[in-house]
């Protein structure tokens, strides 16, 4: 039961990340703000990570490396925030 729910939620979360990334891409095209492009890429990395984790399952040791993608995603967001602040000060 639990594993079915986890599979279902894993798919839902993957799709949610993908759609959010698409929204951010659109916001980037609308405004030209680089922050939105970083967010789009970040959320797509999160989607890819979630897809890999869901498809490989928890027992697979490679899952450990899939988390690199999500960390990369959050680092992308972090660097976008830092750049947004540096751009302001200049």
């Amino acid at each position: 039961m639990t594993s079915t729910v986890v599979e279902f939620l894993g798919g839902a979360v993957t799709l949610a990340f993908l759609v959010a990334g698409a929204f951010f891409l659109r916001f980037w095209r609308k405004t030209g703000q680089a922050l939105f492009r970083s967010f789009a890429l970040a959320f797509w990395l999160l989607a890819l990570n979630q897809a890999i984790v869901s498809l490989l399952g928890p027992a697979d040791e490679r899952t450990g490396y899939a988390y690199v993608l999500r960390v990369l995603g959050f680092l992308l967001i972090l660097s976008a925030i830092i750049r947004a602040n540096l751009a302001r000060k200049r």
Binding site: V13, A16, F23
Partner: peptide, 26 residues
């Protein structure tokens, strides 16, 4: 341990807020 279920619930809950906001407010 196995916290996959609460982890996914937290992510999905958060993302539904975001998508709701994008659809209705943006």
């Amino acid at each position: 341990g196995d916290l996959r279920l609460p982890r996914l619930v937290a992510s999905l809950g958060g993302m539904l807020f975001l998508l709701y906001g994008f659809v209705w407010e943006a």
